[in-house]
Amino acid sequence: MEQVAAFEVSDPGILTTIQDLGRYGFSQFGVPPSGALDTFSLRVGNLLVGNREEEACLEVTLMGLKIKAMKEVVIAITGGDLSPALNGEPLEMWRTHLLLEGDAITFKKVKAGCRAYLAVSRGLVVPKIMGSCSTYLSGNFGGLEGRPLRRGDILYTLDIPSSLDKLGLRFPNDWIPSLEKEALLRIIPGPQDRHFTEKGVQTFCSSSYQVTPQCDRMGVRLEGPKIERRSDVEESIISEGLISGSIQVPGNGKPIIILTELVTGGYTKIATIISTDLPKVAQLKPGDQVRFKPISIEESHDLLKEQEDRLKNFKEILQQR
């Protein structure tokens, strides 16, 4: 299908990458999933502009991105509130907007959260590598030449007129995730929770941890009370698979939340954050606080079903338009 230039990057900001829902099925070759950290926001953004929910979007980190529309396009911005603006005027998030040729979109300063998603009607077009458009930064592939956006980059979309019937469409207000200064992250204990003392597990579940500057697409290092380890087990384990949300505790007793650019690891994992709370992790930035709360598998599956039902409902609302 023909593609057409949709945006020119005037300023890439701190870090902007192209992401979709990730690259699955290649971990046996050591390839991690990559993909949007806040998949909920990416999916909603795509649905708003009339795309399939897995289409490639921009993942904008913190601030500084400025792009200029090279044609008429329909967009939606979801995720963290990075003060998006259209030609300098504040732009409402979680709804569709029509941009005209020459319009500029900027993300000037962080109001809440850490990452915003910009979805474009018809999606962003980059070559699919192993079935996905996601940028894998440390592997240098996927997205736009395996790297963050640069000044002067041109972003392409498919050359089909935007569906203007979706204009002005909003995602229901009470379904938009709220971003608190202290995130409560629900966890399923294990698989190596038994490597820690009862006191250690207690410390982990009752303390507040602070996000350190070591916070990127691979993981989030936390600072806070040391988690006590049993003295009769080794600090490291035989390397095994990781999943987004795995919480590793290395020798220093400070937890690290694993995100989407890692595939295996040899540190003990005290717990795993449930998938419906991963969007909250994506919105953490240095200085933010987190707490952990254990829940049961059944509860976590109910929460996931609830989220999927909402998205299904929203799709039905869209189809009725």
Partner: peptide, 22 residues
């Protein structure tokens, strides 16, 4: 099942519990 990660002594299966219960 959307992914399986084979390693030295374990296999991690990543699945969608909405499609199939645990």
């Amino acid at each position: 099942v959307i992914e399986s990660v084979p390693t030295y002594r374990s296999l991690l299966i990543i699945y969608n519990p909405v499609i199939l219960s645990i």
